[in-house]
């Protein structure tokens, strides 16, 4: 990755950037890790986030941001290798183990991660959380999906509508 003119990260110590969560917690993280976010990448390439400035992230709270950065730090080396073509099987298995562990979390955290991954445009994390939610609801009926995701129980009208739409795709339930 080409370093910006003002950057000093290519010699020895990696360049660091500072991210500021919605509750004003500052996170210092390697630029390479933060750059997994498409949203942040441009700012960082422009030399932002260095020194005392920091990049404010008003949509992400500190708990979520620390979780997101945990993901980014773990995945940054592989991403720097251009999708890790020369990664060993061990490395890949380790990442996979990490991912599985990573999304084994409370639903509210998972929800925050979906939003953060979307806002920050972190492709790998988006896929990971989408896959997690898909696995949670796979094979379930509409009611079970609602319960799994903590939707309130449907009103009688909503229930009737659900039943009506069930008929439309009768083939899918056989």
């Amino acid at each position: 990755m080409a370093a910006p003119e003002s950057g000093d990260g290519n010699n020895g110590a990696a360049r660091m950037v500072t991210l500021i969560s919605s509750d004003n917690t500052r996170f210092e993280v390697e630029a390479a890790a933060a750059s997994l976010s498409q949203t942040l990448q441009l700012t960082i390439l422009d030399g932002g986030g260095g020194g005392g400035d920091g990049i404010p992230l008003p949509n992400v709270d500190s708990a979520t941001l620390s979780k997101v950065l945990e993901y980014c730090i773990k995945h940054a080396p592989a991403a720097a290798n251009g999708g890790a073509p020369n990664a060993t099987a061990v490395d890949r298995a380790e990442l996979e183990r990490f991912d599985n562990e990573f999304v084994n979390i409370d639903q509210s955290v998972l929800y925050s991660l979906i939003m953060a991954a979307h806002n920050l445009e972190i492709e790998g994390l988006q896929s990971l959380v989408a896959k997690k939610v898909a696995d949670m609801i796979k094979g379930k009926s509409p009611m079970e999906i609602r319960r799994t995701l903590g939707f309130p129980d449907p009103t009688p009208e909503e229930q009737a509508e659900m039943n009506a739409h069930m008929l439309e795709y009768g083939w899918a339930y056989e």
Binding site: A134, I137, G139
Partner: peptide, 26 residues
């Protein structure tokens, strides 16, 4: 509030019968 793209990402990973079920959820 979950953005459409994020939802579509989830739906895209579902088998047809679950997708059809999701269509009834709301």
């Amino acid at each position: 509030a979950v953005p459409d793209d994020a939802l579509a990402g989830i739906f895209g990973r579902l088998p047809p019968h679950t997708l059809a079920a999701c269509r009834c959820v709301c």
